[in-house]
Nucleic acid binder design. Structure first.
Lengths: 209, 209
DNA sequence: TCCTCTGTTAACCGCTGCGGTCAATACAAA
DNA sequence: TTTGTATTGACCGCAGCGGTTAACAGAGGA
């Protein structure tokens, strides 16, 4: 890619990146036109080709960028260091949502890229992913103390169920298109509180109305 | 559409329908080629155009079919008559899953059609949907007895959380592509049991290990 | 004033793939 | 052999694709 891309004002860079995220998140790789990305970003197609030699390069640049940004932001906010499960989930979700304020389609783009099957990019997508993944192979969920939770509860199922609900929520929001991060934050906070109240071991004789 | 379509052997009809569900569930309306649908169904493009005069007609036929089939199947299995919430959820999900055994992409197709923005089909999609929707405006969730559940639990949130988890699960499975309905049924049964064990009012002095 | 350098674009090119048509098949029944 | 029907390959005009290129706009220096 052309390093002059970084000389652009940051807003313009982000406009291009977001345009890429958006178009590639709506269509498969093959059916995502460069012209549409350029138009969405507010620049000409020629200029887009001036910064990225071809479509494949732009795509892989975006994929790398999304992964890099996510890991960076997670580290910066100490998401990999939380002891409490709910804190960890909340922190992680907060970071993701905060990210989506700057890059509304980064989540959906990542998911589609992860499952992209086009042979032109498939292999390299996985190569890049593994590069970022090996940094944080999280076996940390195994280190939960069952005494903190409802007696007899299946911790694996509990975690999976929370994960699924989060995914379902995100997915539902993304489908509708109008993303309000603040509202999502509130919704998610409510969900976490709900889980906390239900799943955690009750202190003896606590509040029951 | 050409009524001779119904003279086809049922497997062939279903092949066409499933091919349509599949292609339209992967791409937007505009970017779903008729040729790909024909090829997936194992017939020639010409024949497809022989049964459906144009793309729009095929699309709306599929949309109507998916809605009709779903409502029919729900009614046939008494999904709209369950008293217990969990039974109702389980029954409904079972029907959906059973449907997906016959029409693997019907779920994803419905979702995409619901959010389709192309002006060529948008209005009529909503018209058809409302036609089927008004039959079953479900206000029945309001009729829950709080005494059946954990004291103080927020029933709305509980229901929403279960709904989200189901959506998230379906969405996750659909992304990966390889759909095993039997496995999904087991997974979902587990989730329901999990919810039941957690959310329902405990009988006094019941099993705690 | 002219030149140069950089960022930017409109116009273009060859090609693919689209929605849709149609004349020609294969083939069963009469 | 004829007739009617299910089915297709080849075709058409066109839109839109990835990518190229020659030209333009404008700021700065001589």
């Amino acid at each position: 890619m052309n390093p002059k891309f970084y000389n652009l004002p940051i807003e313009k860079q982000q406009a291009v990146i977001n345009a890429g995220f958006h178009v590639f998140s709506q269509n498969s790789y093959k059916k995502s036109p460069m012209s549409e990305i350029a138009e969405t970003a507010g620049i000409s197609k020629s200029l887009l080709f001036h910064y990225f030699t071809n479509k494949k390069e732009l795509y892989l640049f975006l994929w790398d960028t999304s992964a890099r940004i996510t890991v960076e932001e997670m580290e910066k906010n100490g998401c990999y260091e939380q002891a409490d499960l709910f804190d960890s989930m909340e922190k992680g979700m907060q970071v993701k949502l905060e990210l989506m304020r700057k890059y509304p389609d980064i989540g959906m783009f990542s998911i589609r890229a992860f499952y992209e099957k086009d042979p032109e990019v498939r292999d390299e997508v996985h190569k890049i992913m593994n590069h970022y993944l090996q940094i944080h192979a999280a076996a940390k969920l195994a280190a939960l103390d069952p005494d903190d939770f409802l007696p007899g509860i299946d911790l694996d199922l509990m975690y999976r169920e929370m994960y699924l609900a989060s995914e379902g929520y995100l997915w539902e929001k993304m489908q509708s298109g109008n993303i309000d991060v603040t509202e999502m934050e509130q919704d998610f906070r409510k969900l976490i509180d709900f889980w906390k109240a239900i799943y955690m071991r009750k202190p003896k004789g606590a509040d029951e109305k």
